[in-house]
Design a protein around this nucleic acid. Sequence first.
DNA 1: CAGTGGTCTAGACCACGCG
DNA 2: GCGTGGTCTAGACCACTGG
Lengths: 263, 263
Amino acid sequence: MAQPRYRQIASELRDQITSGALREGDRLPTEPQLQERYRASRNTVRDATALLVNEGLVQRVPGRGGGMIVRRRVTLTFHAHRAEMPARPTAETDAWRSEVVAQGYEASQDFSLTIKSLSSDLAERLHVEPDSGAVLRRCVRYVNGQPSSLQDTYYPIDLAEEIRELLSPKDIPQGTTKLLADRGHEQVAYYDEYISRMPTPEETNLLGLQPGTAILLHIRTGYTEHRPIRVSFNIFAGDRNQIVTTHGDTRIIAKFRPAEAPE
Amino acid sequence: MAQPRYRQIASELRDQITSGALREGDRLPTEPQLQERYRASRNTVRDATALLVNEGLVQRVPGRGGGMIVRRRVTLTFHAHRAEMPARPTAETDAWRSEVVAQGYEASQDFSLTIKSLSSDLAERLHVEPDSGAVLRRCVRYVNGQPSSLQDTYYPIDLAEEIRELLSPKDIPQGTTKLLADRGHEQVAYYDEYISRMPTPEETNLLGLQPGTAILLHIRTGYTEHRPIRVSFNIFAGDRNQIVTTHGDTRIIAKFRPAEAPE
DNA sequence: CAGTGGTCTAGACCACGCG
DNA sequence: GCGTGGTCTAGACCACTGG
């Protein structure tokens, strides 16, 4: 028995899930049932199921009629290249909303605005002095009423003073990218970072994440011809989102993936 | 006490980490010390530290001289757009290796080859019949001797029969992208997917992942003018990697991020 | 009310590895 | 050797929620 007891139990249950014997939404045996089946104490059984929870396979639901159920994976696809490319100045919020709707879901957003002092990390990205001011525009995005992703965008304070709409605590109808372009700050280059990590407690709350859910962090820095003018942190709940981009001749891709046709 | 005990303990320790009172590599108090400090049983203390472990903040090291230490985050940056763009037929393996070396680390790889039958998901991506054959070329990539990422690339079997080198169970010096281009299969479009999730047990073993480590999955489908010819699954250990791409006028980005200058 | 998981205790023995 | 975390047991009381 090289493997400890709780790992053996977890493996058996995991195999039942990956093999399809247990499907999405199905219930695992209850803890007392597992205790009896494996002749183990409750803590051992819980150690086993805790592994599955942290792998994102299973969700625990307390209360009568609850239990441990196999998690569902509904994946929303977000096209990072469609929103706000230089040649296609679509509104970024509209881009997200229309993607959601096109995939058959209902979209809504919560918006908020804060004035902040920039951390050294952010100041470096925006190429300004540390502790200089910035406008933080936060947008929590809901799919079918469930929080799905979160966008934090920082603009240097001097830009916001020039373009006062950035200070308005509500959504900008045509999208900020278009607004900035109309006012002579066209973004002509993007620096994109993709990072996978576990959420902070704040992110867990804002996105309503289950234990065992990673986040997909997409950091986009936008540049005009002269300087960086904004950094966006897109935080996606990893169990409900993926990001897609394309390069090269997209007509070929559309031929084999009809859903990718650029409208 | 709305918050349970173990969450309070976890919060205090987490704050010490995020505030900098505990730095990367530092040791947390031992379990007996935490029991005494918080007057809690060992299991409660372990529930608390388990949270930190699953958040990827802390690593447990058994044995005398071990303990619980704040995890280090060494981030390797991988430029998804540099490798194998149509206009820049750099060898993909060389591209990865040179990135690692440029960032001051030592690079090595383990290569293996398998002939497989395609799952329906993969068959769809490659636009061939389900259960048709494919060559799987796997490359486990090490940074400073530590496994860092994993690349699984699938080629349709008919392509491998035309280009026999794909069946050779070793690395292709000039890179497969260049090889395919030289033989009349130039990739002119890419479909990229980015996904964040917890690892499977197999991935955990191959990459030597700690609990609480998510993976960053980058799926790239390459197309010639006529059809998809390969799917690559790049699986990155989330605690040691990020992916970067750029769009638009990269000279501007290079001006503000000198490290991004295209060599 | 009854059954689910959530939290917590107080013990026990073990494997590992530095000193 | 001996202190670290790894595993496991046998209990207890609680909060929640469907029937």
